[in-house]
Simulated assay, not measured.
Amino acid sequence: MTIFLLRRLLSAVVLLLAVSFLAYVLLYPAAGDIARNILGENASEAQVALKNHELGLDQPLLVQYFTWLMKALGGDLGASYFGSASVWSTLMVRLPVTLSLVIVVTLLTGVLAFAAGIYAAVRKGWVDRTLQILATLGDALPSFIVALFLVTYFAIQLKWFPATGFIPLTESPSGWVRAITLPVIALTIGGVAGVATQVRSATLEVLRHDYIRTVRSRGLSERRIILTSVLRNASTNGLTTLAVQVVGILGGAVVIESVFALPGLGSLAVEATSRTDLPLVIGVVLAVVLIIVIVNLLVDVLVAWLNPKVRLS
């Protein structure tokens, strides 16, 4: 397991370095005249040249990247072009909002999807057909449509939940729950649909194996068989799909945060991109990739624990 973990950690480091390099070399040339964007159209050529020198933008692109990388490895992601706030401090303010959504949605999606997928595979009949219909609807229904319905009906009309804003968990646990409930529901529906379908298919496959009949012949209860033999062997596909869903959750968070006016990484990415605040954009990209890497690493470890054969791959 140790060697398996070290390989996965090394892959994660290489991925982060590759993403940082691609983000830097692709975004900076595409941003146009950054110094003039900061100073405004009325700035003189001398002022623009001075600003470029101040930001190090007059150096070759690879030199700029390696200078940034050395600082980033030391924990300095630079400063925003607008207001000079450090990228790190800005991310630390916005990150808890997005992490709240990602963690709760991922856990909720996993629990609901595994329960629905296994139940449908075991019961079959109308339960199975209903799951397949709901999964198709969940995949087809955009999360922002669900979000608009939820905020209109439950927040504006019934006033059960706040329509906008975020309250940190440390400040008020009940306020935090009320603030993220509707966004979490909007993001969970589509995720549950995709994972539940994979769990159902994997469970049906496991139930056809000879060793399940052997276990049943020993007189064990169906519940115990499901919770031990079936769940352990059918979970690999579901967990892998759940890890992939995290990418969709983060992508959907950009829209959902806009609908509910949540000050997370999604809204920060939109703001920074519209202003060509590239240090912030790259900081958001790295934060998002880091979340995906951590989730995938945790899933890999869990899958390796459930299925020792995976450790050899």
Rank of each mutant, 00 (worst) to 15 (best):
I167F: 02
L227D: 07
L268Q: 14
G32D: 03
V247D: 13
V206E: 00
L50M: 13
V303E: 03
L278F: 05
L101I: 12
R208L: 01
V93L: 13
Q132P: 00
L16C: 10
L239Q: 01
G83W: 11
P263V: 11
L22S: 10
Y81G: 01
T241L: 13
A120I: 06
I167R: 08
A120E: 03
L131A: 07
D33W: 05
L16N: 06
S274C: 00
A35L: 01
S258A: 15
N37T: 05
T106C: 04
V127L: 13
Y65T: 03
I189H: 02
N307V: 06
T214A: 14
V87S: 04
I38S: 01
I249M: 14
N296W: 09
R8H: 10
L55A: 02
R36C: 02
V247T: 15
E41L: 13
G266V: 10
D128H: 04
S174H: 11
S100Q: 04
L73G: 12
T273Q: 13
A179E: 02
V199D: 03
Y211P: 00
L17K: 04
G190C: 08
V14F: 14
P168T: 09
L95A: 14
Y81H: 09
K124G: 12
I34F: 01
N237W: 08
H209G: 10
V284G: 00
W126M: 12
V177E: 03
S86I: 06
N296F: 10
S267P: 01
G266F: 10
L280P: 00
H53L: 12
R8F: 06
P263W: 10
S174F: 14
Q157D: 13
T181S: 14
T109K: 09
P279M: 03
L268K: 08
I292C: 09
I185H: 02
V151C: 05
P279W: 00
G190A: 09
F21Y: 13
F161K: 00
